[in-house]
Design a protein around this nucleic acid. Structure first.
Lengths: 194, 194
DNA sequence: TTCTTATTTAACCATTTGGTTAATAAAATA
DNA sequence: TATTTTATTAACCAAATGGTTAAATAAGAA
């Protein structure tokens, strides 16, 4: 890929993730990429298209290698635990991602309509099997989904509020998130294990 | 209060809550309030000031009558349960609030620095007492805070994504949230009760 | 009524913003 | 080398946006 194009994408990613669509300025992206603003339109035509490019990439990453994990041969709860740990690790590397994705979907729900989302089916099937085997407590699957995602992602959504409430620094926060990997696994076991 | 002022505040609330600061247009607020755009500045001087007015009111509501609840004479876990139920009920009435508050703090952390936030101290004290009495499991208080808030608020933050993932309608979502009041209480008991 | 103050409007303004263009430099291709 | 294509820049543009103003109107106070 063209080095200019690459610089643009990198800059766009940073700006869009931090400020969202409305809060981002094409000029800010150009400045960060150290190129002329016209280049943005030369390579990506419009702000919408550039944003879409970034969003699609980020959105797909918001649901990481779940399938791998969920195809392993182990019971559902263990899989949830592995998922949670991996996922929190991923979010530690991408703390802006959850708020960005949620805001983007919120602003334009149609936007993500075409994107691949087969994950839930796999998950659901797996879950029902383990209930049959008596390995797992019965819950509404929708509640499980929202609970597990919430355990992992909510702290990152609420990061600014949390640091405010707790008077914590950024380092404190990330320390808390590393702890949270264990906390998440404990919570998942308590909630779902028989 | 002046009826025009009132109309403005009502309209500003709707627009700002739905679109956030960057996504909101003064003209859109004026249109919704059915008044001349100049009136906005006549009564509130600038977009910033108008937004601040709305934000402060909404931010304070994001932490509702917690103090009442937490001064009741019962153990910590019961209080958490009452809080969760009340809070989810409140959020059902104000589904846009969490994303709005989080985004606003994220955009401008200093903004909420002066606002009253004594809640955590009260909560913490209460919690430590019950641990001493052996009524409650030992956790990192910060983790509890983020867990309980997450159980209640995350579904509303993720509403558009959830309806997408689950192929659910708005009615389905609110039905889920009504269920979630029970789910939240169950989860809190499992997590924190000895 | 008359004078003063508060409220409302339409027109206007400066700046910002996404986007375009025409000229030019640099590669690639013939 | 000559020619065509690709990449880059500076200047420019139209629309949108937050904000102002001066005049008009409504409302109170004297």
């Amino acid at each position: 890929m063209n080095p200019t194009e690459e610089k643009i994408l990198l800059a766009a990613e940073q700006i869009f993730l931090k400020h969202g669509y409305d809060g981002s300025r094409m000029q800010a992206i150009a400045d960060l990429a150290e190129i002329n603003k016209a280049m943005l339109h030369y390579y990506f035509r419009s702000k919408d298209l550039l944003f879409e490019r970034i969003f699609k990439e980020k959105f797909s990453r918001f649901f990481p290698e779940i399938e791998e994990t969920f195809q392993l041969d182990m019971n559902f709860v263990d899989k949830l635990c592995i998922f949670a740990e991996k996922y929190i690790d991923f979010l530690i590397q991408n703390p802006y991602l959850p708020l960005f994705v949620l805001n983007s979907i919120n602003k334009n729900p149609d936007f993500s309509k075409n994107l691949p989302l087969k994950m839930p089916q796999l998950l659901l099937q797996n879950y029902l099997e383990d209930i049959d085997k008596g390995l797992c407590k019965m819950h509404n699957p929708a509640q499980i989904l929202v609970t597990v995602l919430g355990i992992c992602a909510f702290p990152f959504l609420a990061k600014p509020m949390m640091t405010l409430l707790l008077g914590a620094s950024d380092e404190d926060f990330f320390e808390l998130m590393h702890q949270r990997k264990e906390e998440a696994k404990i919570q998942i076991r308590i909630l779902f294990e028989v």
